[in-house]
């Protein structure tokens, strides 16, 4: 039986693994369906992780984490957990092919870019519709693209795309941005970025090869914008499906499906913890996810030692 099972290997899961093993727990496994690192590896730049003062890509930031975090015995299993349930005092983790038992569980499954629900979005995903500028910007060198969204991520990725593409049209439904003032300033000053504010994308249009443009509803009426790519950054949905059991969630979640925790990252179920983007009121930042992971690990240690 595992002392602690960690589900998810982003900043929260990795940090938790480091603290749990270094803090004395022996049998700790981090279940991460792919290579550890988490969603920040999709980011072109991160400049707000203290101590890393060079502006680095998300991949660069995360490169050294697994080695350090596994130094004290944390094991990584490349498995996607299907379901977490509890039987008496024991947690059961369904891997799809077997059931793993654990004394305590920490959920750090993070979040995923939200779909905007636009007409044509599904049809053209992978054929011009993208949620990752770092991954796909390269295929739009000197081409025109559209960015949808008005938060920090949308603006930062628009700036990144402006370095590669000939033109970036930023479509945002409000007239102001919800982003850091410095980033907003840089966007406004960039002459490759055209702003369409108080506007919404009505439809993504294209042909057999993929996207050719978008129809945008503006205050002045409908306009057609030529674009080969449309990059969507409209927020995140938390990955909570592992907590779904017959008759609802294993523990309390809020209206958005985010896991309720206290200041020690304890959920409503004894021995079950949550950390990072998946918890309610998360700041959705790497440094916060890492901090949560550490807090949760310390709580898990005292829980396991008390049992």
């Amino acid at each position: 039986m595992l002392d602690l099972a960690i589900v998810g290997g982003g900043p929260a899961g990795l940090t938790a693994g480091l603290y749990a093993t270094r803090g004395g727990l022996k049998n700790v496994v981090m279940f991460e369906k792919g290579m550890p690192g988490g969603q920040i590896t999709q980011s072109s730049e991160i400049e707000n992780y203290p101590g890393v003062s060079d502006v680095v890509s998300g991949i660069e930031l995360m490169e050294k984490w697994p080695e350090q975090c596994q130094r004290f015995g944390l094991k990584h299993e490349m498995v996607e957990i299907q379901k977490i349930s509890k039987d008496g005092d024991t947690f059961l983790l369904d891997t799809g092919s077997e059931t793993v038992e654990a004394k305590s569980v920490l959920v750090c499954t993070g979040s995923n870019p939200r779909k905007a629900g636009l007409k044509g979005e599904e049809e053209f995903t992978g054929k011009g519709v993208s949620y990752c500028a770092t991954c796909d910007g390269f295929f739009y060198k000197e081409k025109e693209v559209v960015v949808v969204g008005g938060g920090d991520t949308a603006l930062e990725e628009a700036l990144y795309l402006a370095k590669i593409c000939s033109k970036v049209t930023l479509v945002h439904r409000r007239d102001g941005f919800r982003a850091s003032p410095a980033t907003i300033e840089r966007v406004k000053e960039n002459d490759k970025i055209e702003l369409l504010l108080e506007s919404t994308v009505e439809e993504i249009v294209g042909d057999k090869m993929g996207v050719t443009g978008v129809k945008v509803e503006t205050k002045e009426g409908s306009v057609d914008v030529d674009a080969m790519g449309i990059f969507i950054f409209v927020g995140y949905d938390v990955n909570n499906s592992v907590l779904k059991n017959e008759g609802g969630f294993l523990c309390d979640v809020n209206n958005w499906g985010e896991v309720r925790v206290d200041l020690k990252m304890r959920t409503s179920v004894d021995g079950l913890f949550a950390a990072g983007d998946v918890r309610e009121d998360a700041a959705k930042q790497v440094v916060c996810a890492a901090g949560d992971g550490a807090t949760a690990a310390l709580s898990a240690i005292s829980y396991v030692e008390g049992h």
Partner: peptide
């Protein structure tokens, strides 16, 4: 440079 690609590699 693609995070999801790297994740899926192994």
């Amino acid at each position: 440079w693609c995070g999801p690609c790297k994740m899926m590699g192994p």
